[in-house]
């Protein structure tokens, strides 16, 4: 036994005081008052450190209390009828959450023809030419000004090859090119990171659509084959449309809502 553990040794030999339990209880009960007193007294860096420690302690305590409450609540819920019934053979199997099969392809095609869409963002703010493009001066003396740099995020397909500089009117900077978009399924309330297939329509102008520029309100086509969606006739849906809901050039990512 090490020399410094003389207290333990003593307790082992002679036991504790008879009122030890009582004293400990009282001490514990008085603890908050003591803490409060220190909290009032402390100033400066010491106070900062103290409050920080106190804050984290309280947070963990709250978390544990909540966890316990949830545990109790769960035991009660077990008897209730849960939605989303599955047959016996699918019990305990991990299932990807999936809602109803999406509206069929015919409807989608009809809408496409009419060019009308029930979209989450029906109107967008018009953009000026200055906001959209930056003039790139060219020529030896930099006096020609027919080149434009696209200032916005764009989608460039895999099979795109640059034209010779003489014919390259619009430059889409590679730093602003995107291949993937975050797509939220409105019924599932889940978000997936899906590949962009094409830009279907940019409400600003036809030119932007052709250039593949993605701004707020643009309709993009995304690859949904991973989601395992099927049509009513039992065919796999490969691509669906989504509308961009944020300003990708400002946020640095594309967020969009699947059109169902």
């Amino acid at each position: 036994m090490p020399q410094n553990e003389y207290i333990k040794e003593s307790i082992k030999r002679f036991g504790r005081r008879f009122d030890h339990e009582e004293r400990m209880r009282k001490k514990k009960a008085r603890e908050p008052k003591k803490i409060a007193k220190t909290a009032r007294k402390l100033r400066g860096i010491k106070a900062k450190l103290f409050t920080k420690k106190r804050y984290s302690e309280k947070a963990t305590m709250k978390k544990t209390i909540k966890a316990h409450q949830e545990k109790d609540a769960k035991a009660k819920d077990a008897e209730e009828v849960k939605p989303g019934a599955v047959p016996a053979y699918l019990l305990d199997r991990e299932q990807v959450r999936r809602t109803k099969v999406l509206s069929n392809m015919i409807k989608q095609k009809r809408k496409e023809k009419a060019g009308k869409w029930q979209v989450p963002i029906p109107k967008v703010k018009a953009m000026t030419e200055d906001e959209m493009f930056k003039i790139l001066r060219s020529g030896k003396r930099k006096k020609k000004a027919w080149k434009r740099i696209v200032n916005k995020v764009s989608f460039v397909g895999d099979n795109f090859t640059r034209k010779p500089p003489k014919f390259e009117r619009y430059i889409r900077p590679s730093a602003l090119r995107f291949k993937k978009a975050h797509v939220t399924h409105p019924e599932l309330k889940m978000t997936f990171n899906l590949e962009i297939v094409s830009v279907k329509k940019n409400p600003q102008s036809a030119l932007y659509t052709n250039l593949g520029v993605i701004t707020k309100g643009t309709i993009i086509e995304v690859n949904v084959s991973e989601l395992g969606l099927v049509t009513q006739t039992g065919k796999v849906i490969f691509a669906k449309y989504a509308q961009v809901t944020n300003n990708p050039d400002i946020d640095g990512c594309i967020n969009s809502l699947l059109l169902v």
Binding site: V86, P87, K100, V101, Q232, T233, G234
Partner: peptide, 10 residues
């Protein structure tokens, strides 16, 4: 081929 259901057939 018998399509018609709108969701998984159990």
């Amino acid at each position: 081929d018998l399509p018609g259901h709108a969701d998984e057939v159990y």
